[in-house]
Design a protein around this nucleic acid. Structure first.
Length: 326
DNA sequence: GCAATGACATCCGCGTTTAA
DNA sequence: TTAAACGCGGATGTCATTGC
């Protein structure tokens, strides 16, 4: 099928869509509006990978079934090799994996874009989402229905997604800010039209209009990350310790020296008067330590000795419980 | 010799997003 | 399409001491 033919077909579909503008489609970012069900794949994934011509034929046919214009994107003035992009992404487990595992750097490296392309990762992701995402779902994952779950490879929540769509100029049909003055806590009545991996396709009755949209389950991981974000950012050492703790949480904490106890005590005291001068605090505490008499130091040294004993005892127990059976 | 222990601002590099 | 802004995570710096 030629590009023109594809354009004409998508144009017709666009017109039919514009006739049903009451439909509220809360689509995920950049994803072409997909059909309720996918066409059957007409080739095996391996064939698509091995045969570039077959790939292009099937992609154009597939794109024609979607309400999007099929146009090969240019990057730095050069047509983007969508076949190569498809292979590189699917060989890494698909778009969701590439995004969540931050593998765009690897994919980007394959294309060897000129240095002038400063946002290659984002461009590749954008074009993949707009041109290859549904194709991947059918020819790689062999899905029969669209799974809009990809809304969350970026791990953002529904609120963010909706807010973005409300700000998206392209989302002509995504007008969340419809004339209805909805507020948090407003009640709506609707029906579930379909269920998919991460949520539901729903229709809500608003006056004389029926608005369709998607409800997502907020991933548990997202909740965790949000909780983390609401608190102060942990220090690099704390993150490192947490990493070590995750590796072996039962390992006893290292013992602290007398100076460690002295430092902790004085740090808390000096902090209010040394706002934002942590290094100055450290130097100050070092000076104070050097000015202590032996008797004064002894108080802290004893704490260190006790902690050392604690550490030794805990390590003995730890080692005996982790000893390899002979 | 390196890492850990207390605290965290600052810098840097990389990936993502936005505006023009 | 691209440059710039932005966000995030890791490394560093300060100190003394100790265990591995």
């Amino acid at each position: 099928m030629s590009n023109n033919a594809a354009d004409e077909k998508s144009s017709e579909q666009s017109q039919s869509q514009s006739q049903s503008q009451s439909q509220l489609q809360l689509q995920s970012e950049g994803y072409p509006r997909g059909p309720l069900s996918y066409p059957k794949p007409e080739a095996e994934y391996q064939q698509i990978v091995q045969n570039s011509q077959l790939f292009w034929n099937k992609l154009q046919q597939f794109s024609a079934s979607l309400p999007t214009n099929f146009q090969i994107p240019l990057v730095a003035g050069t047509p983007l090799d969508l076949h190569r992009l498809f292979i590189e992404v699917t060989s890494r487990g698909g778009i969701e994996k590439v995004i969540t595992e931050r593998k765009w750097g690897e994919v980007k490296g394959i294309f060897r874009f000129p240095s002038s392309v400063t946002s290659a990762s984002f461009v590749l992701r954008k074009y993949y989402l707009s041109m290859l995402y549904h194709f991947e779902q059918v020819y790689y994952f062999r899905k029969e229905e669209p799974s809009v779950s990809v809304a969350d490879p970026t791990n953002r929540n529904v609120t963010d997604s909706v807010a973005e769509h409300a700000n998206n100029d392209n989302a002509a049909t995504n007008q969340c800010s419809v004339s209805y003055n909805l507020e948090a806590g407003s009640s709506l009545i609707g029906t579930i039209d379909a269920k998919f991996d991460y949520g539901y396709v729903i229709t809500v009755n608003l006056g004389s209009e029926n608005l369709s949209g998607v409800l997502y389950h907020t991933p548990a991981l997202l909740h965790q990350s949000q909780r983390v974000n609401t608190s102060a950012k942990p220090s690099q050492r704390i993150r490192k310790r947490r990493k070590l703790a995750l590796k072996d949480p039962s390992r006893p904490k290292s013992n602290r020296s007398g100076y460690n106890f002295f430092f902790a005590e004085h740090y808390a005291r000096l902090k209010p008067s040394y706002q934002g001068q942590e290094r100055a605090i450290s130097k100050r505490i070092g000076l104070l330590w050097s000015l202590l008499t032996e008797a004064e130091k002894q108080v802290y040294q004893e704490k260190g000795v006790r902690d050392k004993a604690r550490y030794k005892a805990e390590m003995l127990e730890y080692k005996s419980s982790h000893a390899q059976p002979q």
